[in-house]
Design a protein around this nucleic acid. Structure first.
Lengths: 213, 213, 213, 213
DNA sequence: AATGAATGAGGATTCATTCAT
DNA sequence: GATGAATGAATCCTCATTCAT
């Protein structure tokens, strides 16, 4: 079956090229910001002609959308429902933070820039909600419900608590994105960061005796 | 001394005009987004000529910066160090949330739009950090330290905990800005919202028996 | 009443500027063709900045549409129903041809170029039909009907005959536009041209004895 | 002589391919207009690769020129000098109109599109003049001259009259192309159309008693 | 001080054409 | 000969900013 093979090869080549261009674009976006990045700059970064971008992406907006979906997929894969239930909740949180940390390491500027665009463009906001926020939220909610059923957590308003958890993590990302030094330093020490954050999420401002530092 | 008086009047008139233009700009920014808002639209909203804007602001960016400073001042005034220490910590948080809630009510779109710009533009980020973030952080840190000194709180890593508190609130704002329904509904009920949030910040995910729902 | 006056002056200035730009555009269109003419060239011909065009016209298409309407108005004014009925039909035709001749003298390339665009763009075609074709047709039809009522012409299928008359004139324009020498030379002698054409329209291929050359 | 044969076959294959591509191009041109038609679309319509077009045509313009020549050949063949002289003039005209009608039936959009391009592009205009206009003109002129010699027609300015005849037909085509309903309906009834047109060309506006409707 | 017309740099996008495979 | 990905020149339009009145 030679035809399918050729077809595959062609598709693979296209996918590879798209990925190359996307990667170059992400680099430029992170450096300059999304709207400040010109297609010319992206083309130069990808070492192709400006017009070639349009053989792989309908327009600049699709490039941004694709980037958002890519980031969403990366983020989605961090939360693992099945594996997460095998360990206790603290460990699950801790592991999640750590994986998240590793996935996003060094990409804070890109995250800031992307979030800037998401806040500004309804279409991108929808993509973010569907590809990143909602999947993550669902896993977290299911996880909490299972824990409650198991009796490991007291009954609670699961959707709301989920927002508080996700909101906190999101907020810390933004503090780093805005350049807060304390948060940045905290983040720089993954062990300490995950410890402190897990503790906060579990016990809040007033740690119990067994969790006090 | 007639001259100073005239000067005062002049300055007041200038200040008033700046405020008028700023108000019009904020309205347009909230509606369209900052970069989508044109100076033409702002001039129309302020009922002046386009060129007049430039008699009061150096350029569009200064307009945005000024808006950011204005918002920062409003936000700063919410946290009252002196008054806050007169009540217990829960009440202080609760009051703060409520005041914050009232100050920002109906301005989520503007907040989203401004934050979008802050995330994108280093210069604006600096303004945000200096006028909004740092003052708020300082008050919160001082507050916590005083509470610790008083023995009302256990010893803790104050700067870090402060980031967690502020990060959480910031994260919730962004969840609303991105259109999450659960968070939006939560926010719509100020009493419940402040209760739940205060509880979370105090006790985290695992409320003690006395705080259980 | 000074305000109306100022308003008038402003309006007149705008109208004059529009006219200036339109004139420059028509010149460039005639030289290069409509789609080959760039906004840059039009701006240069009008001795203004490229952006200034857009203070007076929404886009290039509006410029073309406006030109078409202008031409339509010029053409419409050629056919004078009231005056036309005062003279006999031959004289009416003769005068019409002569006025048309004078109005269009030296503008054949522009006419060709405009007609090219009309044939290509539905929106422009509609403008042409409404502003030029239909008014002219109506006057001609009314004219013929009045003549028939007066007994100066035999009963006939007025709409069809009108199309044949207008079609013939239109066709000759196009022959000139395509560069046919015979037609061009004929046109160059207005007296002969109008004579021959009037004769043809009246008597067709087989002139009666009294009309024979 | 095997080589010539192969050569012939080769040439025939090339000719066939050119014709295929041309046919596809004409289809796309008629649908979209010439300049709106992309080489990509033409390639798709011809079910070949975009680059293949350039193995058979130097560029898009040659494709248009070739189409124009093809149309010219079709139109030329409508006017048959030898056959035409066997019948009387009215019948000759009538037959010509009818043949023309059948040849062009359903191709008004293509005619409009082609004429639009001819009016716009001097190079195409020349092709049109040489391949379509001049041959047709010549046959018509010769025809009229022969009739005059035979005494069937009075002496007349043959070139001018020929332009009037051709111009009228051309004009009617354009009225249809611009969407005039009366002309379109007239055209839709070939018998009536040819009758009316022949009558007009013969007798003009003032039909003699024997031709009156 | 207010005006608003003029400015023109800047940028996304299209598409005929080329050429390595 | 066929392919179709790569090319990049070309162009319309936007809009913050200026400045003569």
């Amino acid at each position: 079956m030679p035809l399918p093979k050729i077809h595959d090869r062609r598709e693979r080549r296209i996918a590879r090229r798209r990925a190359d261009i996307l990667e170059a674009a992400m680099k430029v976006f992170a450096e300059k910001g999304i709207r400040q990045a010109t297609t010319k700059e992206i083309a130069e970064a990808a070492d192709i002609a400006e017009g070639t971008i349009y053989n792989y992406f309908a327009n600049k907006e699709e490039l941004v959308a694709e980037m958002l979906m890519y980031i969403g997929d990366v983020e989605s894969r961090i939360l693992d429902y099945v594996e997460g239930l095998k360990v206790d909740l603290r460990t699950f949180f801790h592991d999640y933070m750590l994986k998240r940390y590793r996935a996003l390491e060094g990409n804070h500027r890109l995250i800031a820039v992307v979030f800037s665009e998401v806040l500004n463009t309804p279409e991108l906001r929808d993509i973010y909600m569907q590809r990143t926020f909602m999947p993550g939220t669902k896993i977290m909610e299911d996880h909490l419900r299972t824990r409650i059923e198991r009796g490991e957590l007291p009954p609670m308003d699961v959707p709301t608590i989920t927002r508080l958890l996700i909101g906190t993590i999101l907020g810390l990302h933004l503090l780093i994105a805005t350049g807060d030094e304390v948060t940045t330093e905290l983040w720089a020490d993954p062990q300490k960061f995950t410890d402190v954050l897990t503790d906060f999420l579990f016990n809040g401002l007033t740690p119990r005796s067994d969790a006090a530092e």
